[in-house]
Design a protein around this nucleic acid. Sequence first.
DNA 1: CACCATGTTCCTTG
DNA 2: CCAAGGAACATGGT
Length: 280
Amino acid sequence: MPEMPEVEILARHLRPLLRGKTIRSVTVRRERVLRPTPPRLFEKTLAGAMFKNLTRRGKYLLFELQPKNAKGTLRVLGHLGMTGRMFAAKKNETLPTHAAVVFDLGDRNFIYEDVRYFGRMTLDLSAIERLGPEPSEVSPETFAQSLKHSRQAIKVKLLDQSLIAGVGNIYASEALYRARLSPKLPANRLTAEQAKKLLRAIREVLRDAIKFGSTIPVKTTSGKSGALFYFDDAEGSFYERRLRVYDRVGKPCRNCGGKIERITQAARSTYFCPRCQRGR
DNA sequence: CACCATGTTCCTTG
DNA sequence: CCAAGGAACATGGT
């Protein structure tokens, strides 16, 4: 479920919900998601700690806690992988099949579940050090300059989190379509003007996704307990309306009426309009 | 059975 | 040392 907008929306949702809550105990049900933190250490470190804040960096969540018997701040890094979700649920509810970590908060459980277990919940924060700047904070000049050293296709480059952090497979296609740039363009062939245009498109696409909800056609679980909450409009058409090219292979381009194509780049699908997005 | 899926990391090759 | 490509991770949907 994650690209940066989903993670941002999730952080905003969870922040007031977790703040001030003390963890009574932690149950690790799938050790893989803690990697490389040892399970016993994770459980022991967090039992008795209190949530102080929750922030986002790229597609990562950063939980800040007050340790039980010490000063300072304890930090836990979260990532949703492809299929991760986090939510609070009543304690009498059945745990999801793929619940990976369960925090007992007293009145409720805070659950991290992940069908494919690609995500993480860990004491190892090293991943965020490798992230590039947030798209909202990087200057057009710096962004343009960072593209200069790569001959990789721009679409592939946008997925590189050390370039800018937060853009995933859906929004990479969406941003390039919005900027009218071919996904096949070698990164180092973008002019300063094109790079500037692309950065603007990235910002707009991400901003709109946060504003309107998002993206992934997750069936909302709003009917059930305290889970999420994508601003999905029951019709299922919301997703259709917001995404301009992603997953629209063969359908008419909303700009020129031509057919949207799907190609494979770095083993991932890219969607684009060959008429509107010229170049190579 | 086949292929596809919102992501990252590790390994190999050049 | 770096850039780039591909496999691996694991489960489910169509």
